[in-house]
Computed example of a mutant assay.
Amino acid sequence: MEKTDAVAALGALAQHNRLDVFRLLVQAGPQGMPAGAVADALELAPNTLTFHFDRLRMAGLVAARRDGRSIIYAARYELMNALIAFLTENCCRGACAPAAARKPARKSAKVPA
């Protein structure tokens, strides 16, 4: 991930409603949620929500698809994971990398004292 992409993603998430929208879509899973269900769940007006969806889409964090008369929004996990990897790339010299990136620790045999 390029620094400019990271700044765009972080900027899009740096607002209470957009962060709530993104977290709700992450919880919804890859199938996403209709815009109306997001509006209901977060008690946001549709025109306000449209503005927030646009900001998240422009940053690449959310994808939209039409399903009949509904627009379904879904989190883009690949970009979310790339952002997390970018932020933790040099963290503690690799000791505190995200759990998904860490290798499982080997169980060591207990040595009697």
Results as ranks from 00 to 15, higher is better:
E2G: 06
K3V: 14
T4W: 11
D5R: 09
A6G: 10
A8S: 07
A8W: 00
L10K: 00
G11N: 15
G11E: 01
G11I: 00
G11T: 03
L13H: 06
A14C: 05
A14T: 04
A14S: 13
H16L: 14
H16C: 04
R18S: 00
L19I: 02
D20F: 03
V21H: 04
V21M: 10
F22N: 07
R23L: 14
L24K: 11
L24A: 12
L24T: 14
L25F: 09
L25K: 11
V26W: 03
Q27F: 01
A28W: 01
A28F: 03
G29F: 02
G29L: 00
P30A: 10
Q31I: 02
P34C: 03
A35V: 08
A35D: 08
A35I: 03
G36Q: 11
A37V: 04
V38D: 05
A39Q: 12
D40T: 15
A41T: 11
A41Q: 10
L42D: 11
L42F: 14
E43K: 15
E43P: 00
E43Q: 12
L44N: 03
A45T: 06
P46F: 03
N47P: 13
N47D: 13
T48E: 10
T48N: 05
L49N: 12
L49C: 04
L49V: 05
T50L: 10
T50A: 12
F51C: 06
F51L: 10
F53Q: 07
F53I: 08
R55P: 04
R55S: 07
L56R: 07
L56D: 05
R57V: 05
R57Q: 14
A59L: 05
A59W: 11
G60F: 08
G60P: 14
G60Y: 01
G60S: 05
L61N: 05
L61I: 06
V62R: 03
V62A: 03
A63R: 09
A64N: 01
A64V: 15
A64G: 13
G68R: 12
G68V: 09
R69G: 13
R69Q: 15
S70R: 15
I71P: 06
I72L: 09
I72P: 04
I72K: 07
A74R: 06
A74N: 04
A74Q: 13
A75I: 03
A75V: 09
A75H: 06
Y77M: 09
L79E: 09
L79H: 10
M80V: 09
N81A: 10
A82Y: 01
L83G: 05
I84E: 10
A85L: 08
F86M: 00
L87W: 00
T88C: 02
E89N: 02
E89Y: 01
E89Q: 11
C91H: 09
C91S: 13
C91R: 09
C92E: 15
R93V: 02
R93H: 09
G94K: 00
G94V: 00
G94E: 05
C96D: 15
A97Q: 15
A99V: 08
A99G: 08
A99F: 11
A100H: 02
A100Q: 05
A101M: 07
A101K: 05
A101Y: 08
R102S: 06
P104H: 05
P104A: 00
P104L: 02
A105R: 09
A105F: 09
A105C: 03
R106N: 04
K107A: 15
K107C: 03
S108L: 14
S108K: 15
S108V: 13
S108T: 12
A109R: 15
K110N: 12
V111G: 06
P112I: 07
A113V: 11
A113M: 06
